[in-house]
Design a protein around this nucleic acid. Structure first.
Length: 423
RNA sequence: GGAGAAGUGGCAGAGUGGUCGAAUGCACUGGUCUUGAAAACCAGCGAGGGUUACACCUCCAGGGGUUCGAAUCCCUUCUUCUCCGCCA
């Protein structure tokens, strides 16, 4: 959520920057400003009425104390009108506050200058590419066939006990999953991210805090009887650990990592895009998050990108980094780098990480602030990224490391797996 | 799940209808003293809205109510603690 004070000051510049998202936000921004004007007006009127009635109440108290009951009762009569109008004003005010809230929730974050214009993922800018694309042997197979051949992931069993998009990992497949999780967590904690294990269900307030609500409730599984949501990403519970916090400058930077399963309803289309491990309703992910001083968040984003690069290189996977264009940029982000690994049998790039700087957008909803040197408070910046999402990493490992009668394991994972091949 | 108790500033902890945005202690910040530090002493010290700045308004777990007036009384939700039940 943008801050109304900033909208007031930067209306034109914001509208211009939001054009990169292919929206004309000017009417929204202007109505936010108008509604806020109204809000402040009502607030001032309400404050004045309350002030009057506070004064009267004090006088009444004094009169009672000094035994002057008749005069006190006279004053009492005067409060009726004040009560009535303060009731009205405060009703109007809450309606206007809600109206403003609704408008602000509808405005996406301001893209940074470096974000390219564009309307879809085709306009994303490839800013870096690493590794040679593997040349596979004759008869190489996509991962959904490999997992069947080697009996390491069973989609049918998942269908039986839950439904489509909930695979069952078996044998060395399960072990490889656990290896990846441990490896990722080790890399992240070694880089200074504090490991957290958090609830997989969150309440409504947390959903609002990170921006999944009110917009995207359809993407989350909702446990109606308890009014809780299954997390779509660890970003939600981990960022919300700091909801409502007032930090000191010395607390920065805050860096956290956590492994969680992620649950996504997103129905999506059927076909090769969602085959096998490409898109699931439940998948595992290790996330990294940072809470930063505003001066440091750009550098922090770069550092996160470098960190993820290091992991992919150790895994010996060819990858590329995209700077998302305005049309593809997430609602809450100012700048996002997507990492894609090459899945050699599918001959496709698969997104495995998305690293974003949200600046104050989430912090404003979260009321996540820090004390500035001079007695004031400011919103902190939040960032996060995957480090990494498992299924597509697994898919490319299986495909890229296949030989005619075995699936090799990247060297760095062998100590974690306890085997060097699936055969 | 059942019975009871409780939720106040960063922490501890007073406050049961007006003089309370809230005593006191600790912590913290500035100053005096000191070669420096500690101790002692003095002063300051929650957040949000609003204002050029004041004024002013709001907040004592959340929401609602009673009252001229609520941290204080009532209802409700949540959370914590104790006892019982169940349980990995």
């Amino acid at each position: 959520m943008l801050q109304i004070a900033e909208i007031r000051e930067n209306k034109e510049a914001f509208a211009k920057a939001l054009q990169k998202r292919n929206i004309d936000a000017l009417p929204l921004l202007e109505s936010a400003i108008a509604v806020d004007e109204n809000r402040r007006n009502l607030q001032a009127q309400l404050d004045e009425t309350l002030s009057k009635s506070n004064k009267l109440s004090k006088e009444i108290g004094d009169l009672f104390q000094s035994g002057n009951v008749a005069e006190a009762n006279e004053l009492k009569a005067q409060t009726t009108d004040l009560k009535e109008s303060s009731k009205q004003l405060s009703d109007q005010l809450s309606a206007v506050v809600e109206e403003l809230q609704t408008i602000l929730y509808a405005i996406p974050n301001i893209p940074q200058d470096s974000v390219p214009a564009g309307s879809s993922d085709e306009d994303n800018e490839v800013v870096f590419q690493y590794g040679d694309l593997p040349i596979l042997h004759e008869g190489a197979k996509p991962h959904w066939e490999l997992v069947k051949d080697y009996d390491i992931i069973d989609f049918e069993l998942g269908n039986k006990i839950t439904g489509a998009g909930f695979p069952v990992y078996k044998n060395k497949g399960a072990r490889l999953q656990r290896a990846l999780i441990n490896y990722f967590l080790d890399k992240n904690t070694a880089a200074g991210y504090e490991e957290m294990q958090v609830p997989l269900l969150v309440n409504e307030a947390s959903g609002y805090g990170t921006g999944q609500l009110p917009d995207k409730e359809g993407q989350m599984y909702h446990v109606g009887i308890d009014d809780l949501y299954l997390i779509p990403t660890a970003e939600v519970p981990i960022t919300n650990l700091y909801r409502g916090s007032l930090l000191e400058i010395k607390d920065f930077p805050i860096a956290m990592t956590g492994y969680t399963p992620c649950f996504r309803r997103e129905a999506g289309s059927y076909g090769s895009d969602v085959r096998g491990l490409n898109r699931l309703h439940q998948f595992d992910k290790v996330e990294i998050l940072r809470i930063e001083h505003p001066d440091q968040s750009d550098a922090a984003l770069d550092a996160m990108v470098v960190h993820v690069k290091g992991i992919l290189e150790e895994l010996e996977l060819p990858y590329r980094i995209l700077r998302l264009c305005g049309g593809d940029l997430g609602f809450t982000s100012t700048l996002t780098y997507d990492f894609e690994v090459y899945s050699a049998a599918q001959e496709k790039w698969l997104e495995v990480s998305s690293v974003s700087n949200f600046k104050t957008f989430q912090a404003n909803r979260l009321k996540l602030r820090y004390r500035t040197g001079d007695k004031g408070t400011e919103l902190a910046h939040t960032l996060n990224g995957s480090s990494l999402a498992l299924p597509r990493i697994l898919a490319s490992i299986l495909e890229n490391f296949q030989v005619h009668n075995a699936l090799h394991i990247p060297k760095v994972l062998i100590p974690y797996c306890g085997f060097d091949a699936i055969d």
